[in-house]
Design a binder for these strands. Sequence first.
DNA 1: AACATATAATATGTAATACATAATACATAA
DNA 2: TTATGTATTATGTATTACATATTATATGTT
Lengths: 244, 244
Amino acid sequence: MSKAEGTRNLQSKLRPIVNYSLTDQVETKLLDLFKKEDLRSGDPIPKENELCEAMGVSRTVIREALTRLKTIGLIESKKNKGMILTEPDLLIGLDKLLQPKILSEETLQDMFEMRLALEMGIAELVFARIKPQDILDLKAILKTEKDYKEDLEMDFEARFHGRIYAIARNNTLLRFQSMLLPIFKYVHDKGLKLKEEELPKNYVTHSIIVKVLETGNPEKYRDAMKRHLKVHFDRTIKIRKLLE
Amino acid sequence: MSKAEGTRNLQSKLRPIVNYSLTDQVETKLLDLFKKEDLRSGDPIPKENELCEAMGVSRTVIREALTRLKTIGLIESKKNKGMILTEPDLLIGLDKLLQPKILSEETLQDMFEMRLALEMGIAELVFARIKPQDILDLKAILKTEKDYKEDLEMDFEARFHGRIYAIARNNTLLRFQSMLLPIFKYVHDKGLKLKEEELPKNYVTHSIIVKVLETGNPEKYRDAMKRHLKVHFDRTIKIRKLLE
DNA sequence: AACATATAATATGTAATACATAATACATAA
DNA sequence: TTATGTATTATGTATTACATATTATATGTT
């Protein structure tokens, strides 16, 4: 029996000790408390000193746990007022993380695909909620397309597609999409940029998409968007295959 | 001029003071540093004491800022080793927030719609990556459908649809979907549960979906899934209209 | 009585110091 | 050479004190 095997064997008998720090414990206790008390957004939570006494730990630890909860947007604190539960922002912190430099290629790929999927998937919502003004806005954006030269091309894409997302009237989705922009820019700058010649014959332009939005239906939209994004789909599928 | 108007007028001249706490400032400075130094996942960052000296603030403040960055998964700390930048987990913290109780109806709605959109949108990825084993697994799951009675119905839904997401081979997406489960369960329990009689005539069953996955194509899948989810789409669209 | 101003009380924010603890490197002895 | 003991180091926790912003109360002036 090798040394490694011996260790593994020992492990199965002893089980490694998981070391929850005091802060970890306080954090979970707080979350439990909120759930048990059935607290809602706006409800006040105990003072720091009360928590210290109740849990028998220093204010340092309490504050560290509270800092975590503040960071994910679950609570807010005001001097003298104390702290209250808040409607958390699901996308909080995401903007700080979405810097391509620190994300792995795999995660970038994941996010890129999610965007592609969403762009196709919002068809039903878009057609259920589109209004005349949306078309007008999109047409106005179209007119500016030629003003975006070379390296600004991505900015146009962002504006155009962002405006489509807005039609879905889903604020979380809209913000999510806008946060993903740096990633697409990165992917784009990294060589995704496709020369005109490489575009497939039945390529769907932005202008065609607007037309479909104006006169089409979800099925036609999905078909158009699929062609519009085809190169991206092809690429991501090829890349992922290589990684296997 | 009313008192309120006077205040507004004064505000426009003086601009309210935005009070960045020391911790806020340290946090941004740290993020700037990481970007400026072009640090990558795994790279070490300065020790707490070094940061104290460099920025001229107490360790308390430094640690609070660091706690925030740890919370969003940007850095990790180990005793004696110091701290390193880490590949952040984009979905970190999300599970703590996705308790329906503290989320507003609007946000719940948003998330629900995102899920619907994704389910439709992943068609291309699914068909590009599906393997025989996927079909086998899905068929096995299908066989257990009758075992899930009444209140466990959602568990079956989760298993089935979760398995479909897995076909897309996108880990972030898969985890995202699984985190959303409590929300769907909530929406379901809240009265979404649809009696058999309410199902539309051309309702697509789970079994049909599997068949489409086996022998169809993205278009047919989207069509099937659209019918399968029709009641949900209809409901969310109706609700959102009422909120306008 | 009405109003502005001063004062006190309160809870979070910041600082400073000391010690505990885990991980690593190094030294030591069998 | 190897296992064990020891020192060192950086983070984790505790304690105390004070700063600061907000609210409530009290005070005083007209």
